[in-house]
Design a binder for these strands. Structure first.
Lengths: 335, 335
DNA sequence: CTCTTTGAGGTTACCGGTAACGTCGTCATA
DNA sequence: TATGACGACGTTACCGGTAACCTCAAAGAG
């Protein structure tokens, strides 16, 4: 009545009278065993309730880890949350596990996170950020594992990139506003800790305006974190400086909704007196009194495709270095 | 010119002419070395840019892992996102890393996640869920590591519990509504995948009403996932059945905001014609035309305290099994 | 002055998988 | 019949730390 709480490969091998290498081969789906052996092994594995030890596997020869590090700006954003859920799900199905961190738009924090991650010898790394420190780049090189940059496509990829162009999103929204006859347009943004993709959208927006010979009437870029509050007060401040606008483009939907709250409170009619547009396609945008004009991001698809691309690279399958995910301008009725 | 890309304990030991065990002792802050040796080791570690191999450490003798598994219902919720960020930060400072998963309120998914986690031999597990499968309980026992249940206190803890009582939150809101003179109260909720803490708040709310001799006029519990949409349509459906209400309690702030959107659109004045209350203290609640009455959750504090409690248990320090985190009813102006 | 304690280290074995390589029998082919 | 290729395993070494145990000198106790 030997009670081994955790049977290992060795135990199964002994029960079956074979070597543990054979068990390992069967379980990994490698070659070098007969069908009869496979059956026996799988039965015994089932019977004993064997739990593989990923730690030992990852610790052994390099290239056998199934750990993937993922770092995003924030965990409090439903957008990134959705990407992460999708990543977790897809990677789990492909036999990989994730270690998740956040860097709050600070490249230094990303490097610190990466350093810790590196000590776990992951099989690959996934980053959602536009700017990396020199230390991060060096570390990634030293680690010698595939790297996927997601979310933003504008930087030239270190290895793989899966995402979309924030610049283009901004540009498209500028065209949309112009097409709707908006002339005096303001922008309300927030810097947070810099390096945000939102700033790229702003650049694209400016380009879009200049393309059609228009210019931005006024901008209000807060130093705070973006959010409902920031949208509310940013709008207030901007209109105090220039109340001759007919549309406002916001850093994102949360800020747009905050702005809408301010406008509504002050009797400014949307879209009659003022057009409003956000970015992100958050659910709340569609239950407002008027559906918000915004850009929807297919976060679930992005996560799935990024996961599959990274695993393809890990397996050595041929794969494009850059994958573009289409975003979609949702017209709404606030422009 | 030997180029070892990754110096190990061995390399540092050789450079210094000591054994790698001494290096290990110094780095772990164990005892058994002189101050002079410590200095030398730390300098050499700095000079070589040594990166510890957590994998090897965790793989070795049990009890040396610094990996902590965390499973929450969703990653798309800012509430849980905030808890996770706080956990990550606090645990990182204490020398631990997290492996994060989500179960979408499905106990079976939690068990599947835990099984995968177990194969990484974590030092501890943190769960945010009210219901666990028998398999989960058995697995936790077999793993023999500390377990912290966070978010909800109502179930009797497996090991540690850090959270608050959803029941009490609901109860308090009932009292608040009664005190404000509300008599005909409805409830709009959403089941999602069952097992939600929201249902506990509902139970507490009912209890609160009965305490003062009142009863709920009508309820509308959708089978969908909670969210803005659900709040909007739930309100519509409920009012179609009973439009003689003077207040509505919602599953959470998102649903309350959805409900507010419906009410506003249909000319129902809040709070004059209808009182509204949510739960969660989301930022958006405070920039609405009228500040939403809700219950605020100190998510950052919860994460920090949960992390510290779990690490205390890991270190064998004395620690209370149950830690209550105070939530706070935010009066707002919608009741 | 001897005996014991203590501090500061060194040695060894081991964690549980996996790559690399070796072995042995079988079967097709020259 | 000799040969060689191949399938199906077994053997060995190793990944990089850490606990447990051992050693040895110096300090303190009696």
């Amino acid at each position: 009545m030997e009670k081994r709480p955790k049977p290992g490969l060795e135990d199964i091998a002994r029960n079956l009278g074979v070597s543990k290498m054979t068990i390992s081969r069967v379980l990994r789906g490698a070659s070098g065993f007969s069908e009869a052996t496979r059956e026996k092994v799988l039965q015994e594995v089932e019977r004993t309730g064997y739990l593989p030890n990923r730690l030992a596997a990852a610790f052994g020869p390099s290239g056998t880890s199934t750990l993937i590090g993922v770092c995003v700006p924030r965990l409090t954003s439903p957008l990134f949350g959705s990407v992460l859920e999708s990543l977790n799900l897809t990677l789990a199905r492909l036999g990989y596990q994730t270690m998740i961190g956040s860097h709050n738009q600070l490249p230094d924090e990303e490097e610190i996170w990466l350093r810790t991650l590196a000590s776990w010898k992951p099989a690959a790394v996934m980053l959602a950020s536009r700017v990396h420190t020199k230390g991060t780049i060096r570390l990634l090189r030293d680690m010698g594992v595939p790297v996927a940059e997601i979310w933003d496509l504008t930087t030239k990829p270190i290895d793989l990139a899966i995402g979309f162009s924030h610049f283009d999103d901004g540009l498209e929204m500028a065209r949309c506003m112009s097409a709707a006859g908006r002339k005096k347009i303001g922008y309300v943004g927030a810097l947070g800790n810099r390096n945000t993709s939102g700033h790229l959208r702003y650049q694209g927006f400016l380009r879009g305006l200049s393309e059609i010979g228009a210019t931005l009437a006024v901008e209000e870029i807060l130093k705070d974190q973006p959010g409902f509050y920031a949208g509310y007060y940013g709008t207030e401040t901007m209109l105090a400086r220039n109340n001759d606008l007919d549309a406002i483009y916001y850093h994102d939907d949360e800020m747009a909704i905050g702005g809408l709250a301010y406008l509504t409170k002050n009797g400014v009619r949307v879209p009659e007196d003022m057009g409003v547009a956000g970015w992100g396609g958050m659910e709340a945008a569609s239950i407002l009194p008027r559906r918000l004009t915004t850009t929807a991001i297919p976060t679930t698809r992005l996560g799935k495709i990024a996961a599959e691309a990274l695993v393809s690279r890990l397996r050595g399958d041929p794969i494009e270095d850059v994958t573009i995910i289409q975003t979609r301008l949702v017209p709404g009725s606030t422009i």
